[in-house]
Amino acid sequence: MRITLVPGDITTQNVDAVVNAANSSLLGGGGVDGAIHRRGGPAILAECRELRASRYVNGLPTGMAVATTAGELPARWVIHTVGPVFSAGEDRSELLASCYRESLRVADELGAAGVAFPAVSAGVYGWPMDDAARIAVGTVSATATRVSEVRFVLFTADAHAAFDLALSLLDRP
């Protein structure tokens, strides 16, 4: 699998699937979640409402992932995952890693070859960017998947630098 870093806006990525750093309600929010819902249009929200009425009545659990249409986005699908809120008093790293593993599992089920990820939990959920990058890059590189390209789409220069460092530290054969 090829891992690349791209500065910019995840809603403009022409890949099979973009990953949404969603909240458990699946009904939109701020940051990446709000941008994906706004740019993707009402079809995404309609499918999220169906998911809430059927499979996820109490919301999508943290660390899990589910797919919907991408609506008007250039991607085919949106994979929604709920990242954990950072806590200095409780190690929630495994939940954050699960977001990446579960998103890749869903991508495999869809047959997606290219997937674009944001820095899950590193925005309003407060995860320190360096640690979020380490977990994201390490988990993706260690996960068995048929996805051939993972693209981390990073909105700020600081996020790009953190992911670049994490990628450079991977032990590659």
Rank of each mutant, 00 (worst) to 15 (best):
M1E: 11
R2C: 01
T4N: 07
T11C: 13
D16T: 08
D16F: 06
N20Y: 11
N20L: 14
A21S: 13
A21H: 04
N23A: 00
S24M: 08
S25R: 15
S25N: 13
L26V: 06
V32K: 02
A35E: 05
R39A: 15
A43Q: 14
A46N: 13
E47H: 04
C48W: 12
E50R: 15
L51Y: 06
R52I: 09
L60E: 14
P61Y: 10
P61Q: 09
T62L: 07
M64H: 15
A67V: 14
E72K: 14
A75E: 09
G83R: 02
D91C: 07
L95P: 06
Y100E: 11
L104C: 05
E109F: 06
L110P: 06
A113S: 10
G114A: 14
V115F: 04
V124S: 04
G126I: 07
G126H: 04
W127I: 00
M129W: 00
M129V: 15
R134Y: 03
R146M: 05
V147A: 12
E149M: 03
V150L: 02
R151F: 00
V153A: 04
H160K: 02
A161E: 04
A161L: 01
A161S: 06
A162P: 11
A166Y: 01
A166V: 08
L167R: 15
L167D: 03
P173M: 02
